[in-house]
Simulated scan of single mutants.
Amino acid sequence: SSEYGYEKTLERKGIKAKEEYLSPPAGQYMIKFMLREYYGVSVKSNAETAAEIWHFIDQLKMEELGE
């Protein structure tokens, strides 16, 4: 974490992820994770919070990929 943003790893719903934030003027979040050790997922957004992005990710129903 610094004046330029932050970078952290976390586990959410059993998935290990990397969450990054770039402070303004960029003001961007980037969330990356592997799904089923096969699909690489990367979401970049100008959302207000990381929680908004995670909510969007939850709506995607990615557990159905590859079925």
Rank of each mutant, 00 (worst) to 15 (best):
A47R: 11
Y21E: 11
E11R: 02
Y38C: 06
E7Q: 08
Y29F: 06
A51S: 14
G5K: 09
K8Y: 07
E3G: 05
I57Q: 13
E7D: 08
Q28P: 13
L60D: 00
S42Q: 14
L10T: 00
Y21R: 12
K8C: 12
A50F: 11
L65P: 00
E63V: 10
D58N: 12
K8W: 03
E11D: 11
H55S: 09
E37A: 10
K32Q: 13
G27R: 13
Y21N: 01
A50L: 13
L22F: 02
V41L: 14
A51C: 06
I31D: 06
E67L: 15
G40D: 07
E11F: 05
Y38D: 08
L65K: 06
K8H: 03
P24F: 08
Q59I: 10
A50C: 10
A47Y: 01
M30P: 00
R36G: 09
Y21I: 14
K61P: 10
E37G: 06
L60F: 11
R36P: 14
I31R: 00
A26S: 07
E3K: 10
E19W: 03
P25D: 02
I31A: 09
E7T: 09
T9N: 11
K8D: 09
F33A: 08
S45W: 08
S1D: 07
F33H: 08
T9M: 13
L60I: 05
K18P: 04
E20S: 02
Y38R: 14
E7N: 04
L22A: 11
E37I: 13
R36V: 13
A17I: 11
L60R: 01
I15V: 11
Q28K: 15
F56V: 01
I31M: 01
S2Y: 01
